[in-house]
């Protein structure tokens, strides 16, 4: 677990350096490897978003797909049905997600849901959204929405040729913005209050901090951040449907990078994403194209996810504070 953070400028410098380094990637990586990089970026982005609520604010969300889905569907709907730029859709999605988070968060806190109950409530909200969206004809029900392919690339419509480095650069830019928001928030007064409320709610209130307001704020910010990546996801993959957007699998995919990297740590979600996505990629590659001694697994679905699940179990058992979290702790000693 983190403490309140020091030295915002140092962290921002690290971020800038990392960004500069990564910005060169599309110029020496191509094809599927670049797609993997984009998936890392998305995973890191949603993880950074989740971490604000699940890590720093200590409100474990098991239903962050709700925000991802709101972001994805807002922009996809506005684009597909009304031809509105995904940038605007992204903003709309972020605002809607923040509102949804504030409302459901406020309700949950008002009714004093904690621990298991809180986690299950977040899960239920996401499931309800999935089921509601499934039943909406104007959102094309279970079929989902398909982003129309334009004749030429356009920054305004956030669409480029498949070989363009721009997708990666846009994603990287978004990730940098999300991470910068996190850095600034948790080096500031509000972020300090959010962490204090996580540490001890009564103590925080006796210190003059409005606990409910800060928890709601954390949920709203976290939701908006996650929604942004939802929009980006649709633009990259051209497609979204209710299960993909709002399903439990997405909720888990969103919280995993933070948990694997280290919840409530600044760099945990990014480290987590950089481990998880290549790992998943590598296991499915082994199944597609196994080395000789493993050729019995060839083409068999299931093995990749089994390996994945096993590794997750091992991490949870032996590095319960996450990879980055455990390392950071050792360093501090």
């Amino acid at each position: 677990m983190s403490t309140v953070l020091r030295d915002a400028r140092g962290q921002l410098l690290v971020l800038a350096g990392l960004a500069a380094l990564l910005a060169t990637v599309p110029f020496w990586l191509e094809g599927s490897a670049r797609t993997v990089m984009i998936r890392i970026i998305i995973s890191a982005g949603v993880g950074v978003g989740w971490n604000v609520m699940g890590g720093f604010a200590g409100q474990f969300s098991f239903g962050h797909a709700a925000y991802f889905g709101i972001g994805a569907y807002s922009s996809a709907y506005l684009l597909v049905d009304h031809g509105i730029s995904p940038w605007i859709g992204m903003a709309v999605g972020a605002v809607l997600a923040a509102a949804f988070g504030a409302l459901t968060g406020w309700l949950s806190f008002r009714y004093r849901l904690r621990g298991a109950y809180f986690a299950l409530a977040t899960f239920a909200f996401a499931e309800m959204l999935r089921l509601v969206v499934q039943g909406q004809e104007w959102l094309n029900g279970t079929q989902g929405l398909q982003v129309p392919v334009l004749a030429e690339s356009s920054w305004w419509m956030l669409q480029f040729s498949t070989t363009s480095p721009n997708y990666f650069l846009v994603g990287l830019g978004l990730l940098v913005v999300l991470q910068a928001i996190t850095i600034l928030l948790f080096h500031g007064r509000r972020g300090m209050f959010i962490v204090a409320v996580r540490e001890d709610e009564e103590g925080a209130e006796a210190s003059g901090v409005d606990a409910t307001a800060h928890k709601v704020m954390a949920v709203a910010v976290s939701g908006a951040m996650t929604a942004v990546m939802g929009t980006f996801f649709v633009q990259v993959f051209f497609f979204i449907d209710p299960a993909l957007a709002f399903g439990p699998a997405e909720s888990v995919a969103i919280l995993l990078p933070a948990v694997v990297g280290g919840t409530g740590t600044l760099w945990g979600p990014i480290v987590g994403a950089a481990i998880l996505i290549p790992l998943g990629e590598w296991t499915s590659k082994i199944v597609r194209d196994p080395p000789p001694f493993l050729d019995f697994v060839a083409g068999r679905s299931g093995i990749d996810l089994m390996v994945f699940a096993t590794l997750l179990i091992l991490i949870l058992l032996f590095l319960p504070k996450g990879v980055y979290g455990s390392l950071a702790e050792r360093f501090r000693r």
């Binding site: 403490t3 962490v195 540490e199 009564e202 103590g203 006796a206």
Partner: peptide, 12 residues
Amino acid sequence: MRPFASMTVRDN
């Protein structure tokens, strides 16, 4: 007592 355990004394 209700300290913010993982925060420093100063931050508390």
